[in-house]
Computed example of a mutant assay.
Amino acid sequence: MKIDLTGRKAIVTGSTAGIGRAIAEGLAGAGASVVINGRTEERVAATLREMRALLPDADLSGVAADVATPEGSAGLFERAPDADILVNNAGTARPNDFFLQDDDEWLDLFQLNVMSGVRAARHYLPGMKARGWGRVVFISSESALNIPREMIDYGVTKTAVLGVSRGLTELVAGTGVTVNAVVPGPTNSEILSNWMKATAEKQGITPAQAEQNFLREQRPTTLINRFATTEEVANMVVYACSKQASATTGAVLRVDGGVLRSIA
């Protein structure tokens, strides 16, 4: 299968590192014009330099905007008003104590993990419908279906993402636009890698040992016995954005390494 996205414009939120960065590289490598997004000009500029060195023929641009806020989202829409492909990747996770969290912490995470995607879909989907073609992908998590006790708020936001994705699928039925959610499992992204490095330093072990301890203690149902790579997650997203995926919509596409013990 050869995926060719030449002539398509893609926006990937939260794409200066981790899964978002790998998705941006995958889409650009398939020929799409890609808009990089991050919170600061410095991160966006550095990512553009690195990606242009890696993919010198790619059509890349960047918008620094904090999509966790309505104002930041509006700034993104102003500078990148249209898109054929929208990947709602911006989000974060942070281990915490449920009983010590206050309302503001919950609401802040909801703004980033859920409302950033809601606002982007609300802006870009009408244009996709009018043109008769579009791809929207929400990045959720296996934590949406297997709520982790160490970050209940994160799991709840990723469950909400699945609901938004499925609901939007119904709104765009028959228009040539597809909406899907991708569910990564533990992935060697910037956030989780930093967590493993900090854990390893604290416990006096290697990051590789910290990874195995995490899987054994918190994700014992893994079938690949390792973290996925960001590229493995990106491969699924690039497929979901392709013309070949025209009959794939309303789906929860797993790249979870078999963590979820379910046949549906």
Score class of each variant (00 low, 15 high):
I3Y: 09
G7S: 10
T13W: 02
T13H: 04
G14Y: 02
T16L: 01
A24S: 03
G26T: 00
A28M: 10
A28V: 05
G29L: 11
G29A: 12
N37M: 04
G38N: 08
T40A: 06
T40W: 11
E41N: 13
E42L: 10
E50T: 12
E50N: 14
E50K: 14
M51R: 01
D57M: 06
A58S: 03
L60G: 05
L60P: 06
G62S: 05
A65M: 06
D66E: 12
V67K: 01
G75S: 11
F77R: 05
R79L: 12
P81E: 11
P81Q: 11
D84V: 09
I85T: 10
L86H: 13
V87N: 02
N88H: 04
A90E: 00
T92I: 09
T92F: 13
T92G: 13
R94S: 10
R94P: 00
D97H: 14
F99C: 14
F99L: 15
L100R: 15
D103N: 07
L107F: 07
D108R: 11
D108N: 12
L112Q: 01
M115C: 09
M115F: 14
G117M: 07
V118K: 06
R119F: 03
R119S: 01
R122S: 01
R122D: 01
R122M: 04
G127C: 08
G127N: 08
K129S: 02
A130V: 10
W133Q: 10
F138E: 03
I147N: 04
P148V: 05
M151K: 00
I152P: 02
D153G: 10
G155D: 02
K158M: 02
T159Q: 02
T159V: 00
L171Q: 15
L171T: 15
G174A: 04
V179G: 06
V179F: 01
N180Q: 01
P184Y: 07
P186F: 02
S189F: 00
E190P: 03
I191F: 02
I191M: 13
S193N: 13
W195A: 10
W195H: 06
K197G: 02
K197E: 12
A198P: 00
Q218C: 04
F227S: 03
A228S: 14
E232R: 10
N235Y: 04
N235D: 13
V237M: 08
V238M: 08
K243E: 15
K243P: 12
K243W: 09
S246Y: 07
A247L: 15
D256H: 04
D256T: 01
L260G: 05
A264R: 14
